[in-house]
Write a protein that binds this DNA or RNA. Structure first.
Length: 482
RNA sequence: GGUGGGGUGGCCGAAUGGCGAGGCAACGGCCUGCAAAGCCGUGUACGCGGGUUCGAUUCCCGUCCCCACCUCCA
């Protein structure tokens, strides 16, 4: 069964066939680097990372591009505020920080947060500020085609002419007439209130570093323009998949589509949108203040559990965060981990040999990760049964299958969770623990259970968990701290 | 007002016109000196009202409620 994906534009699940056989071009919206990421941003990264991994497993060569919007009104506002009298510096926002320093700093914070949960770096991460030339070319094409115009006032803005583009609204299935008027929208020199800025004229107070010369005067790019310019530059005028959060459908993606299509580009063939992360039913967002940061999650669960949690729901579903969510994910992850550690790693199966058909079918069905996880857990259970029955061949084969599945889901670090290590300190620790375990084994052999239990308690107090198995006692560091 | 997505057992979360995905939690059993891990088993789930049907959680109509977007948003 071939891959099928839900496309927002056609509002239907369609067979996915790339433009070029064997190759997939994927563009997905990254961050406007005006602040630290929250969990919602990271979910989006995980979703498109899983998509990329699945496409690659399926045999495609994937070119993925995720933009960095490193100049916009909010970035400039925050930087400007840091120079204002009475500004109170905080951990996130120090005093007197130029806009480009702020943007670059948060770009790195974002990358660290993505990396912490195993989101692979895209093929390329272009920055808006590095593509002003391409944006100018696109604006010129739109003006030439009669779909953009310089502002009628002297602002130096250039707007997209929504009324000139019949298809405007096609992505989100809205007609311009039915759209609610934005009462706070500044009509400025617009022909229609819904016209949006392609280019924003320089204002007297703007930093000189945040303005570029253009045929329409000095200024900076409008928000939506960079994605059109950069996606088509690196992926072609028509490319396979455009992704992003559900909240980007309108206006961001609608406007991107309008710009590119009106300029004559085919643009994205599939539009994928991931669901929001909510907290007690409400969308996580800075303005509401119900943010959970990646740091807060990492404080209560290991990265692999955080990743499991963020990826476990279907990507189009809303994901509601609750205090118990992460411990639950941790428990599920440990179950998988325990099986892999029991089964050992002595197998040489290729992923294709052992990947369960049901897993493939689930992933091909619009990335049905919940169903895929069901297959994963069934495999763990069957593998555990095989171990209990002494059928090591079957167990090893199941372990290989689990390994193949968790690699696709980006949970492969589960495999490396064993306590033994090459580092000298770990070796020394292993020696000490083993001495304790030997002493305990002697006590147990002598039926001196008080001593045996005391030894186990002392290890537990030191953060070391002991488990008895038919092959003797094993130990591990207590998960998630003591 | 417009557009889109939902309401599933104690919780999370899928599929499906007919045999109750999967995980977490709970309970019972096996195993174990005990524990842990593991295995087996248990639970009268589909917002409400109609309709179609031999049969509806699933399809249709109505209705209530929730969420997202309508120019800051992952």
């Amino acid at each position: 069964m071939a891959l099928r994906l839900y496309d927002t534009k056609t509002a239907a699940i369609r067979d996915f066939e790339p433009l070029q056989p064997g190759q997939v071009s994927l563009y997905y919206c990254g961050a406007t680097v005006q602040g630290a990421p929250h969990v919602g941003h990271i979910r989006s990264g995980v979703v498109f990372d899983i998509l990329t991994r699945w496409l690659e497993y399926t045999g495609y060569r994937v070119t993925s591009v995720r933009n960095v919007t490193d100049v916009d009104d909010k970035i400039l506002q925050k930087a400007a505020a840091s120079y204002a009298p009475g500004f109170e510096p905080s951990e996130d926002y120090p005093a007197e920080e130029p806009w480009f320093a702020l943007a670059y700093r948060f770009e790195q914070v974002f990358n660290a947060a993505y990396g912490a949960v195993g989101v692979s770096r895209p093929t390329y991460e272009p920055r808006a500020t590095g593509h002003i030339t391409e944006m100018h070319a696109l604006i010129q094409r739109l003006i030439d085609a009669g779909h953009a115009y310089p502002a009628t006032d002297d602002s130096g803005d250039v707007y997209f002419d929504v009324r000139s583009w019949q298809r405007y609204g096609e992505l989100t299935h809205q007609s311009v007439e039915d759209m609610q008027d934005a009462p706070d929208a500044d009509p400025r020199g617009k022909r229609d209130r819904r016209d949006f800025a392609l280019w924003k004229g320089d204002k007297p107070d703007d930093p000189t570093t945040a303005a570029w010369d253009s045929p329409w005067g000095r200024g900076r790019p409008g928000w939506h323009l960079e994605c059109s310019a950069m996606s088509t530059k690196y992926l072609g005028s028509t490319f396979d998949i455009h992704g992003g959060g559900l909240d980007l459908r309108f206006p961001h993606h609608e406007n991107e589509l309008a710009q590119s299509a009106a300029a004559g580009d085919g643009f994205a063939r599939f539009w994928l949108h991931n669901g929001m992360v909510t907290y007690e039913g409400e969308k996580m967002s800075k303005s509401i203040g119900n943010i959970i940061t990646p740091e807060e999650m990492h404080a209560v669960a290991r990265p692999v559990a955080v990743r499991y949690y963020l990826g476990q729901a279907h990507y189009r579903s809303q994901l509601d965060y609750k205090p118990g969510s992460l411990p639950e994910a941790e428990a599920a992850v440990e179950r998988i981990e325990n099986f892999l550690n029991r089964a050992g790693a002595d197998y040489e199966y290729t992923a294709a040999e052992v990947m369960p058909d049901a897993f493939v079918a689930a992933m091909n069905d619009d990335l049905n990760v919940p169903a895929a996880l069901a297959v994963l857990h069934e495999t763990v259970r069957t593998g555990n049964s095989a171990l209990d029955a002494g059928d090591d061949d079957a167990a090893v084969r199941h372990a290989a299958a689990v390994q193949a599945m968790i690699t696709v889901l980006g949970l492969e670090e589960l495999r490396a969770a064993e306590p033994a290590g090459a580092a000298a300190a770990e070796e020394a620790l292993a020696n000490l623990v083993q001495q304790q375990l030997d002493a305990r084994a002697e006590a147990k052999a002598a039926k001196d259970f008080d001593t045996a239990d005391a030894l186990r308690s002392r290890l537990a107090a030191a953060g070391i968990e002991v488990e008895d198995t038919p092959q003797g006692a094993t130990w591990s560091l207590t998960k998630g701290g003591v």
